[in-house]
Design a protein around this nucleic acid. Structure first.
Lengths: 225, 225
DNA sequence: GACCTTCTCACCTACGTGTTAAGC
DNA sequence: TCGCTTAACACGTAGGTGAGAAGG
């Protein structure tokens, strides 16, 4: 086991594989004040959206891109007096020692959407050329706190997560060719925003929250018009 | 040449391949009074939407589903006195003798979206299991009368077309495994509806035209409220 | 003028936001 | 009470309709 990216003997491809996070500056803004992501019963999108640009794949080989969310620590977190503090051990206890190669197990990798909390990019499977011709956007992934069936990621509120990207070469035998985590994208799952600075950033940069941005602009200091 | 569905020697798969049109009753309602589809500069969706259910593929083989639009005859058509009549020879002259096997030519079948007026279903390429687990919907295909670049089908207004579905097995060598036309889905491309009965059916069944349905219900005979 | 095309528009569908108040 | 979760809501984004006037 212990598959490593592009290190298998006899595999001429993916030697120069590169995966980079798009809009890393935006992610950093959220990271610096501890990012939060809403989880709801019906599922909530992420903001910022995880986007990656990929190069170094074999253009004509078939790959699937997978996203999962590893617990970033073993704590439950609380927001008190303007900061996040640990509040005891995690609940479920998936723990930290979470190998990356288990994504190659089982069948139907590109069919099911909820095998062990793995989100499969909807373009999967596709040619290396497809993944490389433009940045790959995971804007449709939805985070939930309920068992919900189709294509949603179930997380535990008030726990910290690390999104992870996996690239799998699809063939008679699946082969993990990449396994990347971007620290900037860590977040704490919440059912309602705790830090109002996070709320402000979400409103400022998410077009879907424009209604609240307008409200602020029209009435910045709370004074009537 | 002359590839035929599931008839190649040494191919154990796709022996029992079946492709059936969904909502055939709805299509028939339009067909009976000669269906029309709007074409616009920016592209217009089809209504009804072409949906097919597929069975008999090899679940673990990779396929792409393609849609193209063959001229149904060599005429240009006019709507006069409530009926469609021929009005001379067709313009471009792609003609009728249009083989079906040319879709296997060339490379990048699943990448480009505009090779010779072929629309590639956005789920392509994918496993047989994916195509068979639910009806395949071509709701995103857009019809245009301008050269438009990305993923749109260019048609000539006032000409009659026959949508055709192609299933291609994606491998080192592409292999056409199906080539189906449903007569119910024939239509004449128009820039504005000619037959008001067609307009009425579109409004009645297309949810996006609900505004006009409500208007009729509120004021059926033209009398004030 | 007759025919066909183009553009703008009001009105929908569909759904992504944080807010707020109620629930537990 | 307090902390956390839920559901209804107003208000956006994004884009699919035919109508109707204007253009060629």
């Amino acid at each position: 086991r212990e598959l490593q990216a592009g290190r298998e003997k006899g595999d001429p491809t993916e030697r120069e594989l590169k995966v980079s996070l798009e809009e890393a500056e935006l992610w950093s803004k959220f990271q610096h004040i501890t990012n939060e992501m809403i989880v709801t019963k019906n599922g909530r999108r992420m903001f910022p959206v995880l986007k990656v640009s990929v190069s170094g794949l074999d253009p004509s080989s078939m790959y699937s891109l997978l996203l999962d969310f590893a617990p970033a620590d073993s704590s439950r977190w609380k927001f008190v007096n303007g900061e996040w503090v640990s509040a005891g051990k995690a609940e479920c206890g998936r723990g930290l020692a979470h190998g990356g190669d288990d994504v190659t197990e089982g069948r139907g990798l590109a069919e099911g959407r909820d095998h062990g909390g793995i989100y499969i990019h909807p373009d999967s499977p596709n040619f290396g050329a497809h993944w490389m011709k433009a940045a790959v956007t995971f804007n449709k992934v939805k985070l939930t706190n309920k068992v919900n069936g189709a294509g949603q990621i179930m997380l535990t509120s008030l726990h910290r997560y690390q999104p992870r990207l996996h690239i799998v070469c699809v063939g008679t035998r699946h082969r993990l060719v990449s396994n990347v985590s971007f620290k900037e994208t860590q977040f704490i799952a919440v059912t309602a925003y705790q830090n109002e600075e996070i709320t402000a950033l979400k409103i400022k940069y998410n077009p879907f929250a424009k209604a609240f941005l307008d409200a602020k602009e029209r009435n910045p200091g709370g004074r009537g018009l």
